[in-house]
Write a protein that binds this DNA or RNA. Structure first.
Lengths: 245, 245
DNA sequence: CTATTATACCGACCATCGGTCTATTCTCAA
DNA sequence: TTGAGAATAGACCGATGGTCGGTATAATAG
């Protein structure tokens, strides 16, 4: 193979891009390192120059997702015009939106992320996102408890429950996505929408505030995001060669 | 090796036993098939006579856990003396107890199940248990909604949240278990106990019933189970040979 | 008590995996 | 111009999950 030298950061991002595409389409376990380097058009030596292991690749991928998920959160935290409830709502909306949209950079990715074999990857992403967002969430809840807006004895616990909701939806969507037909898509969307409503109310009640106080996203939000993505599948990245496995 | 022929069901159970011990001590990924068959004193051919793949072994293991978790639930469902709340409490207590005690058949198993590398195994078990218990949970909640005891528009969603709680505890415990010292153990137990209290109240509020109505286990229950196990480590199963890896 | 078939089991073998290592080529500062 | 180090290639390695042809035992029939 001819030797091509690129800017290190570019190459690293390229590797991450191809890894993301392959992990999402085949799952972390089934997508082999050889597949990744083949897709990226790079030798093994080059790969191990950038990453110490395949596991590290997964980690880096999760971090990249998390970093994206955290973007913009600072503004919300600093906004003096927001009370605890407003701040919580804004953070939740931001977090959920960032997670969905990051994961759904292309429709194909979004669809495959919810396949059962991607549970590990999804969990990693969720964990990484939680790690970066959770402390802020705890702080906001604590503020709300202090000024009497919220009513709970365990802010960390509530934050965990909130972050957990993302994971809970995985099975719901995975099930409905199973066949991939339009009808099943509709079912999936409805189920997810309903589930979001329940999470909002659950959170309201856990925090001891009136039903409807928490708004993760407007009704129809899930459908809007998902159908928009579907209409515009955009670039899916690597043209992974078909294999029989 | 001399050929030993055993009753098929016995051999299958034996394989599951050794797989359970090894998966829990080394994690699903790190415990190789060769380790399992070596521990069971069986050839590769024999193993593949009983299971189509290593993955199937994990599946079968999860099912066995789930089956155990479901034991006794029938009595609760049939008991005419219980109202929806009582039934829900009984089922929750049963479910959680069964899960903890099944997983904790020996202290060592309990401790290792919460190691990060066992997340997949834990998730499988949780999923399998959910699949068998969840329908009953939904039915009970629905009964409660019908007779006005509970207040929710999405019984399946609530059931999912309930089953999700088990998964949420994994990270909490895993973190505190990290070092393995007595002090960290105490922290883990306290954290878990506090978390259980929160889940109870969260469930109360989600269902629109007074705080304290739901009882997953008495205060001190977690500590009782865990310290009891510790004092009596019992049989850990296969004497897996040390390896450096 | 044989003969036959079905089942339980063995272990050598295989492709592939993640990972290592040495050699080569490129870049760029001195 | 040169030399050090970064970037890349690809042959190679042990281990892994899985396959396959064969063998021993159990079950059944005659």
């Amino acid at each position: 193979m001819p030797r091509v030298i690129k800017h290190p950061e570019l190459r690293r991002e390229e590797l991450l891009d191809h890894a993301q595409a392959l992990f999402l389409t085949h799952g972390y376990d089934k997508a082999s390192l050889n597949d990744v380097i083949a897709a990226a058009g790079v030798s093994k030596g080059a790969f191990y120059h950038y990453f110490p292991s395949k596991e590290a690749l997964l980690e880096a991928l999760a971090e990249r997702f998390a970093k994206h998920a955290l973007a913009g959160v600072q503004d919300i935290l600093a906004d003096p015009a927001l009370d605890p409830l407003g701040r919580l709502n804004a953070l939740l909306a931001k977090s959920r939106q960032a997670k969905i949209e990051t994961a759904a950079e292309a429709w194909a990715l979004f669809e495959t992320l919810f396949r059962p074999e991607n549970l590990v990857l999804f969990h990693r992403i969720n964990l990484a996102a939680s790690a970066s967002i959770s402390p802020h969430l705890v702080e906001i809840i604590r503020q709300g408890v202090d000024d009497g807006t919220f009513r709970t004895f365990d802010p960390e616990g509530v934050a965990d429950i909130v972050m957990q909701f993302g994971l809970a939806t995985h099975d719901v969507i995975a099930k409905a996505f199973a066949s991939g037909t339009d009808a099943d898509m509709d079912i999936a969307i409805e189920a997810l929408e309903k589930r979001v409503r329940l999470y909002e109310i659950a959170l309201d009640r856990i925090l001891g505030i009136p039903d409807g106080s928490i708004r993760i996203g407007e009704p129809g939000y899930v459908r809007a995001v998902m159908t928009a993505r579907r209409a515009n599948p955009s670039a899916s990245g690597a043209a992974a060669s078909k294999k029989s496995r």
